[in-house]
Design a protein around this nucleic acid. Structure first.
Lengths: 209, 209
DNA sequence: TGTACATCAGTGAACGCGCGTTCACTGATGTAC
DNA sequence: TGTACATCAGTGAACGCGCGTTCACTGATGTAC
């Protein structure tokens, strides 16, 4: 949302290509999305596309990089917002989860899908560096959620034995799985309700209610 | 595992095609899987393929139908096993989840992936009837898990307010998401540990520990 | 301020390969009488 | 048991279209002097 207006003409076209491509990839998979349809929708020629990306794999990489970046800026903003509302690590995390659920529920036509999940189910289509980006993405999510859980566990005794890495992973799992369910069932609300259930789990583990 | 030996020659070839196709689709997506590579691995010709399937969408349909059928026979077997070990609905469900986690953890190279999830991220590639099959698959899972939860809720008070549909969906979400994480991180154990965490959640809700 | 040159953001046409699909045909196996 | 015919489980060759990629070129904008 920052520098939308400050983009040069070329950067604007590039962003437009990425927007169109992401939408298509989330519905047809990477292999099912042709450059022809992208350029048709973008209103440029084939060569115009190759001015911005050296080949299709390069598009895949740029697409994923942008997705991971924006994903993180969303999480960062929500964490920051939550931290401002409570200094307690548990309550801050619970607030974050509530905000996260709200954001995911407020998308007009439901969540469009997780590009990382889509890529995982097409891993053999991508070069090694792209595959490593999806792996690294999940590792970062684990680490960052885990940090929060560490701080919680330092202050609150847990009602049951828990592995904090698994608990951190569970948020990714519930979100990825919730998106799939939402899309498949055409019930946009499913995703945010799943996140709220993860929240209930965290509450039960550390507060017992 | 039943009638492996009683298949006719044609049925054997058909199953072989489906095995090869499923493996490829889970790694490259449906569009990224060519008939050429399938027939090469199956050791037949293009026309041999079209003797068994009228077109590529027909293959997609047969693939998904077989996947849903075997998936259900696995769940049915595990539910039956669990029911034999306990008559109490909660304990039976907890046993089922333990068995489920074990089965998912015992796969030699990790879980190969969920065909339904893969299809959801390529929904625009398929005819309407195939898309409806994935939706119906998720609906059936919800209904069947929900039946179990209804019986539990009838006997056990829940520690917190829960929506049983959401709780039923959460098993699908955690499983689908867990598979994605396992694949992406190349950590086969993640999936079964996620299922065990869902189990811990159910326990906390109905037993409080 | 005017001119020369460089960079930006593309165009247009052609390429060869791989894709899914069709069609006429065939040898092996099964069935009827 | 032998023969006629039908079905099964494919083969082989050809199809046209769409795909990703390349290459020589170009008008508009920016920069140096």
């Amino acid at each position: 949302m920052a520098n939308v207006q400050t983009l040069s003409k070329g950067e604007q076209t590039r962003e437009r290509i990425l927007d169109i491509a992401q939408d298509a990839v989330l519905h047809k998979g990477f292999a099912g999305t042709s450059l022809d349809e992208i350029i048709a929708e973008a209103g440029i020629t084939k060569s115009g596309f190759f001015y911005h990306f050296k080949d299709k794999n390069d598009l895949a990489k740029a697409l994923l990089q942008r997705y991971l970046d924006t994903e993180w800026s969303v999480f960062d903003a929500l964490f920051k917002q939550a931290d401002e509302l409570s200094e307690d690590p548990l309550h801050s995390f619970l607030i974050f989860l509530k905000l996260f659920a709200e954001v995911m529920g407020d998308l007009p036509n439901g969540h469009p899908g997780c590009l990382v999940s889509s890529y995982v189910y097409s891993d053999h289509m991508f070069s090694r560096d792209v595959r490593e980006m999806t792996t690294e993405g999940h590792r970062i999510w684990r680490r960052r959620f885990r940090e929060r859980l560490d701080r919680i566990a330092a202050r609150y005794p847990s009602r049951i034995e828990v592995n904090l890495d698994d608990m951190a992973d569970m948020l990714s799992a519930v979100a990825d799985g919730g998106i799939i369910l939402s899309k498949s069932l055409s019930e946009p609300g499913v995703l945010s309700r799943q996140i709220m259930q993860y929240r209930a789990f965290v509450r039960l583990v550390f507060l017992g209610n």
